[in-house]
Each structure stands twice: as structure tokens, then as C-alpha cells.
């Protein structure tokens, strides 16, 4: 009798231990499942960021070399003419690219918002370029803008013999061809963002504005566009990081040339790290690009998180 009770006790103890284990598993299973991918990201994204930062202070040339040289690579970077041109190009490119994409995207969205027929079709048409890879866009525009093959030759064949459009091979103008191709690709996407924003505006507000006697363009400038602030911000952030990361578009369209006329920080980084045996300089340019992006993304993400909590 006494033994029986003792055995019962023992079995309930082991049962409750089992329950504890299951409870522990249930509570921690998600963490356990996520742990490997978390470790991989930690290593390959953040680990390599730190590694790159270290390399930018090292004597690395063709291969990584961990001798600490302080700011030597950084000063070399800033004394490189190509880097200065790259930054200047980046400035021209991003200002025009972001500005034109937003202006064109917003205008297209407003036109499409006029409840026209075929809207679905048109919207897809404008969105298609974004589905293409930058390489395809770059190559297509290279052919189109090539004086011997594309637009210029077609115009000559049509009889406009004096027509001249050689921006692609003109080192002063080549950067603008990158702008044209980039804008062509992204403005449809920006249009879709603005269209979603326009559709989100309360219909009754527009009715109220109509009764208040505002003409259509004033309804846009005074009431609708001021409400699109968040869309402008999102479009700006998306476009800016696309601009800073622009690499394949330039490689396919101009290859950074003529000369280094269309070099951008991303192409600079690639060529110094992997073809010119200057890993240290390449790493410092990469870190600098990270700093620009971070200085914009961090406040943006921070404000998004804060806004989300509210």
C-alpha cells in the first residue's frame, strides 16, 4: 500500500517534468527555429560589414592584409580623381533621377486617377519596366541611344540628316543617359506608389472641396498633394537607395565610360576592389556609401517604428 503510493508519486513527478519540457519547447521553439538563419545573417551581413570597415583601415592591396594603417586608405580614396568624379556623378544622377521620377510618377498617377478607361492596362504598361533587370534596361537603352544603331540612325534614315544625339559617347553628357534610362525604369513604380496614395484619400474630402468651390488643380495642390507626404518620403527613400546602389545599369549602358565620365561610387568600389587590386581603397569607398545610406535610412526606419507604435 505504502509502496503503491510512493510509485504513484514518482510517476506524477516524472509526468510533470515531461510537461515542463513540452512547455519549454512550446515557448522557445520559434527562437530555436530562427536561430540558424539569425546566425547566418549575423555572420554574412553584419560580420562582413565589420570586416569591410576593418579592411578600410588596413594595408590591403590585391588580397586582404590586416596591417593597421589608420586613415591612409581613406586619404588615398579622397585624393583619387575618379572617386571625386564618381561622387559628383552620384550627386547629379540622384538629384535628377529622384526629382524626375517623382515628378513623372506623380503626374502619371494624377492622369490615371481621372477615372479613365483602360486604367488597369495602362498601369501594368507603366509598371513593366520595373520588372526588367537593370542589365536589360541598360542594354536596351545602349542600343537605342547608340548613334550608329538607334535613334540617331533612324532619324537619318527618315531624312533628318542633321539630327544628332550622341550623349552616350559624349563624356559631358553621358551621365544624363544613365538618368534617362533610370527614370524610364523606375517612374512607373513610383507612379504606382502615388496612385495607391491618391486612392487612399477619403472621397468625402474631395466632395467637400468641390462644394467649397476649389478648381481641380487647386484640389490637387492644396488638398491632395499635401496629404501625400508619407508617399513622397517613401518614394524618396526608395529612389535614393536605388541611386546610391546603381551599378548594373551603368555597367550595361556605358561601362562607366567614356573614360570615367559615368563612374559612380558603386562602380568605383567594384573596379578598385576587384580589378585594380586596391581592396583597401575599395573598402573605404564601400564604407562611405554605407554611411550615406545609413544617414538616411536610420532616421527613416526609426520614425516608421515610432509612427507604427503610435
Amino acid at each position: 500500500m505504502q509502496q503503491n503510493i510512493a510509485r504513484d508519486k514518482a510517476s506524477t513527478v516524472s509526468e510533470s517534468r515531461n510537461d515542463k519540457l513540452i512547455g519549454y519547447l512550446q515557448q522557445h521553439l520559434p527562437k530555436l527555429v530562427l536561430a540558424p538563419s539569425f546566425a547566418v545573417i549575423l555572420m554574412f551581413v553584419y560580420g562582413f560589414i565589420l570586416w569591410t570597415v576593418y579592411l578600410s583601415f588596413s594595408a590591403s592591396k590585391m588580397l586582404p592584409n590586416y596591417t593597421w594603417v589608420g586613415l591612409e586608405q581613406w586619404s588615398r580614396l579622397w585624393n583619387t580623381l575618379t572617386w571625386q568624379i564618381s561622387l559628383q556623378n552620384l550627386f547629379i544622377f540622384s538629384v535628377l533621377y529622384i526629382g524626375l521620377c517623382i515628378v513623372i510618377g506623380l503626374s502619371l498617377a494624377i492622369l490615371l486617377d481621372q477615372k479613365i478607361r483602360l486604367e488597369g492596362g495602362l498601369r501594368t504598361l507603366y509598371l513593366y519596366p520595373m520588372a526588367l533587370s537593370f542589365i536589360v534596361t541598360g542594354t536596351a537603352w545602349k542600343w537605342f541611344l547608340n548613334p550608329g544603331l538607334g535613334l540617331e540612325r533612324t532619324m537619318h534614315e527618315w531624312g533628318f540628316v542633321d539630327f544628332k544625339f550622341d550623349w552616350l559617347i559624349n563624356s559631358d553628357m553621358a551621365i544624363y543617359t544613365v538618368v534617362i534610362a533610370g527614370v524610364w525604369q523606375a517612374s512607373g513604380f513610383i507612379m504606382a506608389m502615388f496612385l495607391a496614395g491618391l486612392r487612399g484619400i477619403d472621397n468625402e474630402i474631395l466632395k467637400a472641396a468641390q462644394i467649397d468651390g476649389a478648381p481641380a488643380w487647386k484640389i490637387y495642390t492644396r488638398i491632395i498633394i499635401p496629404q501625400l507626404g508619407p508617399v513622397f518620403l517613401s518614394a524618396f527613400v526608395v529612389l535614393l537607395h536605388l541611386a546610391i546602389k546603381s551599378f548594373d545599369l551603368v555597367i550595361a549602358l556605358t561601362g562607366g565610360g567614356p573614360g570615367n565620365a559615368t563612374s559612380l561610387p558603386a562602380t568605383f568600389m567594384y573596379s578598385y576592389s576587384f580589378t585594380r587590386n586596391q581592396i583597401g581603397v575599395g573598402a573605404s569607398s564601400a564604407v562611405f556609401m554605407l554611411m550615406i545610406i545609413a544617414s538616411i535610412m536610420v532616421p527613416y526606419i526609426y520614425s516608421e517604428i515610432k509612427g507604427g507604435k503610435k
Binding site: 477619403d202 474630402i205 466632395k207 467637400a208 472641396a209 468641390q210 462644394i211 468651390g213
Partner: peptide
């Protein structure tokens, strides 16, 4: 609507944010 000399109050108030 603006020439009818009417004013309207909407269910959602429709204020300009």
C-alpha cells in the same frame, strides 16, 4: 456644386487634414 449655394456636412466630417 459650388454654384448651388449649398453647404454640406459629411459623416466622416471630411476635414482637410
Amino acid at each position: 456644386p459650388s454654384k448651388r449655394d449649398i453647404a454640406m456636412v459629411f459623416q466622416s466630417y471630411a476635414l482637410y487634414p
